[in-house]
Design a protein around this nucleic acid. Structure first.
Ligand SMILES: [Zn+2]
Ligand SMILES: [Zn+2]
Ligand SMILES: [Zn+2]
Ligand SMILES: [Zn+2]
Lengths: 157, 157
DNA sequence: ACGCAAATGATAATCATTCTCATTTGCATT
DNA sequence: AATGCAAATGAGAATGATTATCATTTGCGT
């Protein structure tokens, strides 16, 4: 077989991180797990649930390392705990359901542009920003709305 | 003198909170203190510094009560600690200097409108939102930029 | 002035996260 | 494949922010 193998091993290698079992498991979880946005605790629980044995401290360490390496993004929605997601290179903002915590993503060019302009007007150079809309999705698929379906909402423009 | 007195006593009363010394002091600090945006710890330290004797637990309690009563707003900028500010009824978003932590406020009608539209498109009913721009103010007045002046920037558009 | 529920303050407890350190493991080299 | 060692891990202690407990104090209506 040719050398077009494990992209994860590559990711880790090029990030200067040696490829260990906990790291590969965590990366795999973000790539093909049930949730795109997960807290350290969630990652830990999911790994335990799937029989993997990793320490909570390691999960925290690895998440931080991955974030610093650019593999993951860290968000601080309300509630004091950080959530992470795979960095796909495509910036987006979030809307979080206040009932069930479900996270939806969106991108709006107008808002992004305005942010730049506003910062410029105030004499700041933007380095980062976080926009999070808090809402309740009673109108769509939400466990707390009596519907457990996965949300598939897409902006119809 | 007529009965158009202490608006603070009124605020507390109408919030169902009895007017106590810690509450009045904290409210006064937000109204005429040196900072509009303060964490519990900052409030606590400022009160101690001015000779007042309040417990830290009370500060936390009162801040939460004030927030629930609508007197204060709570924000969760990055860094894991909540900051509070007097609720003036005028919604605004924030830009925080990553160097010195200085907070500047702004309001942009275009962004606000877009948020509404986006949520509507996704089938959510917005209940709240938080937008925070992280930047460094090396271009303006920042202690870390060698200038301690208070910023007075105002968006011109 | 009384009485009592509400409020306070000191401290313990909790929660998320980081640190410590002894043990294990990846990986380059023999 | 065996060796060596720095890097990584895991268990648990430590930290920082915040909340809960509870005995004591205080605001306020009577
Ligand atoms: Zn954005
Ligand atoms: Zn996302
Ligand atoms: Zn806004
Ligand atoms: Zn503000």
């Amino acid at each position: 077989m040719p050398s077009a193998e494990q992209p994860n091993l590559e990711s880790l290698k090029s990030a200067g991180l040696k490829s260990t079992s906990p790291r590969l498991k965590i990366l795999a979880l973000f790539e093909s797990g049930p949730e795109r946005h997960m807290s350290a605790e969630e990652v830990y629980r999911l790994l335990l649930a799937s029989g993997e044995d990793v320490g909570l401290a390691t999960v925290y360490r690895v998440l931080t390392q991955f974030q610093q390496a650019g593999l993951l993004e860290r968000h601080n929605f309300e509630g004091g705990k950080s959530v992470f997601e795979l960095n796909q290179g495509k910036h987006h903002d979030h809307i979080v359901c206040l009932q069930c915590g479900h996270v939806e993503e969106f991108y709006d060019a107008i808002i992004e542009t305005r942010q730049q302009n506003i910062a410029a007007e105030l004499g700041f150079g933007i380095r980062d920003h976080s926009l999070c809309l808090y809402a309740d999705c009673t109108k769509i698929q939400c466990p707390h709305a009596g519907n457990t379906q996965r949300s598939t909402a897409t902006p119809s423009a």
